[in-house]
Each structure stands twice: as structure tokens, then as C-alpha cells.
């Protein structure tokens, strides 16, 4: 092509047109990296497959944790029990979102007459973020029905869900509050300069932006909630964890717990990926 091509660049003119020197270098580097990654992963997997069964107790563990027959027998019933987890999740999640938002807004009220609200929000988040979930589940799940309430108000479903709702609202409220605080003061100035009231400014300008901004963080809370629903098994409802416990005693085998774990993973892994995706998209938009 040219009279004096730089060394190495002119080896074939048409290839240079489709792929620059850098591109072909990067493609080689990528291929090499993939090969190395595949090789090292294979080595680790092989080591596990060969070494773990060499452990003296492996045979016993395999029988009690990875028993195919037990797996097939318990899977359908456990999956059914899991729908109860989903149900508890489904009514708790919206309640958490609403309560969390209310508490976050309460923490931001400025009017002195409303100071009790603000104090309440502060105390609330301190208390419920400071107690382990399982303790709240016990205290509310056993304590309130202990008042001798008539059916259906003594149901552990109601009070167990309430325990989750109260605890998670405290965390979600903090997430919303961080969202509210992340909105630049100039947005508030602009709204105020137009003569909007404090509450209209919050409702139409600050909150819509803040809520959008914390969607990914709240997704992570939902995933944690989905797992913590299993804690209700300690106060009665026969959901997946308790059902697995029943099977464990019945069949003298731990495989049902592994089944339960797999069922949880089938839900939480895609949900986590989705949350990551949302977060990455938001990071792209804001940069």
C-alpha cells in the first residue's frame, strides 16, 4: 500500500483494514486469559471431586446429605411448602416498602409540632436494627398471641409476618433516607423558589427521585427478606424449612435440607443477578 510501511504493520494490507494491531493483540490476550481461567477452574474442580471422597467420613455424609431417593421423595412436598414462604414474602414486601417510606419521611419532618414523629422514627430504627431478627420473631410471634387473642388473631402467620415487617422496615427506612439525602440541595431550592410547600417539594420533587435511586439497594433487602421468611418456622408455620425438619426426623436423613437450600438458590440467585444488573445500569446512567 504505502511506500514505507512501519515494521510489522504492512504484513497484509486487507487484514489490517479489518483488525488493527491493537485489536488483534487484545484478541490474542483474551484467548490466552480464557484458556488459563478454564484450566485452573478444571484443576480445582478435579481436586475437589477426587479429594473430598477420600475423606474418611465421605460415605456417611453422602448417604445422609446427598441421598437421591430421599431427594426425589421430598422434593415435591418441599416445593409446595415453599409456596408458603413466597406467600409470606408477597404480603410482607409491600408492607415493608410502605412502612419504611413512612418512617424515612418522618425522620425528615422539620415542623416542631411533628417532633414526636421524628423521635419515634429515630427510636424505631435504632431498636429494630439493633435486635436480631430471630429475637423479634420470637418476642412478637409468641408474645402477642400469648395475650389470648381469639382466632384468627392468634395466628403465627400474622405475628410472624409482622415481626419481619417491623425489622425490615427499619433497614428499608434507612435506605430511603440515604436516597432522600442524596438528592442535591439545588433541587429543593428550585422547588422552593417556585413557591411549592415543604410537603409538595418532598412529594413531587425529592421522593420520586430518591425512590428511583435506591431501587437496587432495596432489591438486596428483598433478597435477604426472602431468606429470612424461613425464620418463621421457629414459631409454627409449616413452611419449607420446618417441612424439611419434619422430613429429617421422619427419614433420619439431612437431604431435605439440601433440597430446601437448592430451592432457595433457584429464587435468590436470579434475583441477585437482576439486582446487580439494575445497579450496574444505574452506575452507567449516572457516570
Amino acid at each position: 500500500m504505502s511506500d514505507s510501511p512501519p515494521a510489522g504493520a504492512g504484513s497484509s494490507g486487507d487484514r489490517a483494514a479489518t483488525l488493527t494491531r491493537r485489536q488483534s493483540y487484545e484478541r490474542r490476550a483474551r484467548r490466552r486469559a480464557t484458556l488459563v481461567a478454564a484450566g485452573s477452574t478444571l484443576a480445582v474442580v478435579l481436586a475437589l471431586v477426587i479429594l473430598v471422597p477420600l475423606a474418611p467420613g465421605w460415605e456417611a455424609v453422602r448417604k445422609s446429605f446427598f441421598n437421591g431417593a430421599v431427594f426425589r421423595e421430598t422434593f415435591p412436598k418441599l416445593l409446595e411448602a415453599f409456596t408458603l414462604d413466597l406467600l409470606i414474602f408477597a404480603w410482607s414486601a409491600p408492607a415493608i416498602a410502605i412502612l419504611g417510606l413512612l418512617i424515612a419521611v418522618c425522620r425528615d419532618v422539620r415542623a416542631p409540632a411533628l417532633y414526636p414523629l421524628r423521635l419515634f422514627a429515630i427510636v424505631y430504627t435504632d431498636i429494630f436494627r439493633g435486635i436480631p431478627v430471630i429475637l423479634v420473631v420470637y418476642l412478637i410471634g409468641f408474645g402477642i398471641p400469648g395475650l389470648g387473642l381469639p382466632r384468627p388473631w392468634n395466628s403465627p402467620y400474622i405475628w410472624g409476618s409482622l415481626a419481619l415487617i417491623l425489622t425490615y422496615s427499619a433497614y428499608v427506612a434507612e435506605i430511603f433516607r440515604s436516597g432522600i439525602e442524596s438528592i442535591h440541595a439545588s433541587q429543593r431550592s428550585a422547588a422552593m423558589s417556585l413557591g411549592l410547600s415543604q410537603s409538595d417539594t418532598m412529594r413531587f420533587v425529592i421522593l420520586p427521585q430518591a425512590i428511583r435511586r435506591v431501587v437496587p439497594a432495596n432489591m438486596n433487602m428483598l433478597i435477604a427478606l426472602q431468606k429470612d421468611v424461613a425464620l418463621l418456622s421457629f414459631i409454627g408455620p409449616v413452611e419449607i424449612l420446618r417441612q424439611a425438619g419434619v422430613y429429617k426426623s421422619l427419614l433420619a436423613n439431612f437431604t431435605p435440607y439440601v433440597v430446601a437450600a437448592l430451592i432457595f438458590l433457584a429464587v435468590t440467585v436470579p434475583a441477585t443477578r437482576f439486582a446487580d444488573h439494575l445497579m450496574a445500569r444505574q452506575a452507567r446512567q449516572r457516570s
Binding site: 439545588s186 433541587q187 431550592s189 428550585a190 422552593m192 413557591g195 420533587v205 427521585q209
Partner: peptide, 18 residues
């Protein structure tokens, strides 16, 4: 300040659109 601000318009350096 609300009724007063309604009578006075303001535009900012950084636009501050919603």
C-alpha cells in the same frame, strides 16, 4: 415565605430542572 416566593421567579446557574 411561600406566597412571597410565588411572586418572585428565580433561575439558577445549574438549571435545576426536575
Amino acid at each position: 415565605p411561600q406566597p412571597i416566593r410565588q411572586r418572585i421567579g428565580m433561575v439558577f446557574q445549574s438549571f435545576n430542572l426536575f
